[in-house]
Each structure stands twice: as structure tokens, then as C-alpha cells.
Design a protein around this nucleic acid. Structure first.
Ligand code: MN
Ligand code: MN
Ligand code: MN
Ligand code: MN
Lengths: 148, 148
DNA sequence: ATTAATGTGTAGCATTAGCTACAAAAGTAA
DNA sequence: TTACTTTTGTAGCTAATGCTACACATTAAT
């Protein structure tokens, strides 16, 4: 029996695992942000270019171009050299889900009295960690407070 | 005048930047999770070993060892070869802040009716994206619903 | 004291995501 | 058409976080 068996025996607090599948989760978060912005750009300006994404995200065009390649590999977008970026059906689906969740989170935070700018900023991160159950709880709370 | 100037002119939606300082943010999130778990391990079992962190986080001991080196470099922990891990004063401070925020987020979600297990799971991600203002809004809501 | 099990370290590989620097393509203006 | 500006691409660097494989140290059991 080795060292931490003793630890286990005397463990009072529950193990309470915190699985950090960071790499995978983060690439999903990035994907969601990208497709959401691509959809917005197409809706508002007619097309999504690498440079527009770079400006919106505050990163260089190189970073965006590489990420677009990955999203293309994953079947979320299509793009050809020197042309604009398009969403595939699955990319469009993801963008709509992301946009919807994003809106709900922002509205929810505002309904708690969080200043609009802060709500928008916090939502950019929180949106990626809200499960279906929590999202529904947010919506329920929104319905309640809207009536009141 | 180049391509996207036209886009800018006809832009209806606000720019609404989504700055992705992903790399830096993520290393902070990792640091928070680690010091929080280290504090828990010390409190419940007397010491924090690499292997315990690895089990808790669901990663290999190699990943943990490397991260501990980084946290040491950043002045949050101390460790010697084959010995257990300790928090520095600044590591302890961060662990307490993280733990407090973590608890608040879990309690808040539960107060919305989110099932305990889901609340715990979602909180692990959300906790890192909650600003001071939002945290205060959570606390305010908690006080309200506790009284009611 | 030996042996076995457990824990830790190191080497080396992959992926993601940031950057700068430079070259080439595409678009705009003269 | 030519010249200039903007956009895109490519090469190559860094850092964080995941992994396996293997060696070595430490602890536990015999
Ligand atoms: Mn986001
Ligand atoms: Mn978003
Ligand atoms: Mn966490
Ligand atoms: Mn936590």
C-alpha cells in the first residue's frame, strides 16, 4: 500500500472530480465563437473575411486563417484561397445554437442587474459552460422576471 | 479603398468585439483550479501529491507535474522532487478567492433549481468567467431567495 | 533485507493558439 | 496600365496542455 492510500482512507471531502478536458473543450469554444461571428458578419455585411474575424477577435489574420482551416477540416465552414468564408449546414446549426445561448445568457445576467457591458463581456465566457439544464433554468427565471 | 471598407460602411450591427485572449485566460483558469484543489487536498488529507491532483483532474501525472512547475515559476506553489506540494501565500490567497467564488456559483445555480450535480459541473467552467459585478449579483440573488 | 507496488521524473510527440516577418494575390485609385 | 493599399498565404517561433514510454525513487509488504 502506497502513500496516498492513507490519504484516501482519511478523506473527508468527497472526491468531487474536476475533469479538465481543456484542450478539447477549448477548441469547441473557439469553434462556437467563430461560427457565431461568421454568421453575424454574413448577416450584417454580406460576407465573412479573415480580416474581419481577426479584427473582431483581436488576433492576427494568421491565427484566424489557421483556425478556419481547422473548422473546415471539422466540416463547419468552407473556404477557398482569397475568397470569403461560408458556413456548412452543420456550421449554421452550431451558429444558431450558439447565438441563441449567447442571447439567453446576456439577457439573464442583465435581468439580475448586471450592467449591460459587463453582462456582454461575462457572457462571452459563461456561454460555453452552460448546460441544457442551466440554460433552461436561466430561461425560466427570465420568464418570471419579465412578467413581474 | 479595399474590400471590407464597404462592409464597414454598411455595417448595421455594432462591432461588439469578442477579444479572445485565450492562452492567457486559460492558464489563469488552470492555476485557479490547481490551487483550489491543492488547498482541498491539504485540508482533507494533509498533503497534496502530484498523483492526487492527476486523479482529481483526470489527466496523467506528467501533465500535472509540468503544470506544477509552471505554477512554481509563477510563485503560486513550492515543491521539491519527490515531496508534496505547498501553496505560497499568494497561492493560498488565490485558492481562497477561487474556492469562495466556486461556492457562490454552485449555490447560485442550485438556487435557480439546477440539479446539484449539474450545478457542480457547470460551476467548474462558469466560475472562471464571473466578474466581480456578476458575482455580487449572484450573491444578492442568493440573499433574496434565502429569505423567501 | 528483498521484493513488489506506487509515485515521480524525463524524453519526446501532437495539437491548439498566439506572434512576427515576409511574399504574393487581389482590389482600388491615379 | 501602373502604382498603391489591403488582404491573404506561408514559414517559423513560442507556450500550454494533452499523451505514451521508460527510468528511477520512494514506500509498503514479505
Ligand atoms: Mn464566447
Ligand atoms: Mn458568443
Ligand atoms: Mn474550474
Ligand atoms: Mn473550482
Amino acid at each position: 500500500m502506497a502513500r496516498s492510500a492513507l490519504a484516501e482512507k482519511s478523506s473527508l471531502a468527497l472526491p468531487h472530480r474536476h475533469p479538465r478536458r481543456t484542450r478539447e473543450e477549448h477548441s469547441h469554444e473557439t469553434a462556437q465563437d467563430y461560427v457565431e461571428i461568421i454568421a453575424e458578419l454574413i448577416a450584417s455585411t454580406g460576407e465573412a473575411r479573415v480580416i474581419d474575424l481577426a479584427r473582431r477577435l483581436g488576433v492576427t489574420h494568421v491565427t484566424v486563417a489557421r483556425t478556419i482551416k481547422r473548422l473546415q477540416r471539422e466540416g463547419l465552414v468552407t473556404s477557398l484561397p482569397y475568397r470569403s468564408i461560408f458556413l456548412t449546414p452543420s456550421g449554421r446549426k452550431l451558429s444558431e445554437e450558439s447565438r441563441s445561448r449567447h442571447t439567453t445568457v446576456v439577457d439573464f445576467l442583465k435581468s439580475l442587474g448586471v450592467p449591460k457591458v459587463v453582462a456582454q463581456s461575462d457572457a462571452e465566457g459563461i456561454e460555453h459552460h452552460v448546460s441544457r439544464e442551466t440554460l433552461q433554468a436561466f430561461e425560466k427565471h427570465l420568464r418570471k422576471t419579465k412578467i413581474a
